[in-house]
């Protein structure tokens, strides 16, 4: 399974944490499509805690964390 964590405004109508079957997704782009998240709404795309691009491949056991542009402190 691939764990997908959505944050901030991306959670609206989509949920917080979802498990997806790894066999159906090859990269982050396919996962964004699954959730109907427009590319321009993604500012930070983490795979296992490291900054990545949606084009990067994903595999079983990965944890994805996806954030819209948000801010600092």
């Amino acid at each position: 399974m691939i764990e997908v964590r959505l944050f901030a405004t991306l959670r609206k109508d989509r949920g917080k944490v979802m498990q997806l079957p790894a066999s159906e997704f090859s990269d982050g782009v396919s996962i964004l499509e699954h959730f109907a998240i427009p590319r321009e709404e993604v500012a930070i795309f983490l795979i296992n805690g490291f900054h990545s691009k949606p084009e990067d491949p994903v595999k079983d056991g990965d944890i994805l964390a996806i954030f819209p542009p948000v801010g600092g402190g």
């Binding site: 901030a8 930070i44 964390a65 542009p69 801010g71 600092g72 402190g73």
Partner: peptide
Amino acid sequence: NSVTGQGLKTYGTAVLVNIVNNIG
């Protein structure tokens, strides 16, 4: 700018909790 225009208004600096935690 999406950070200063919307992001900080909606969540404040508190939005960092999940970001910083998720990078460990």
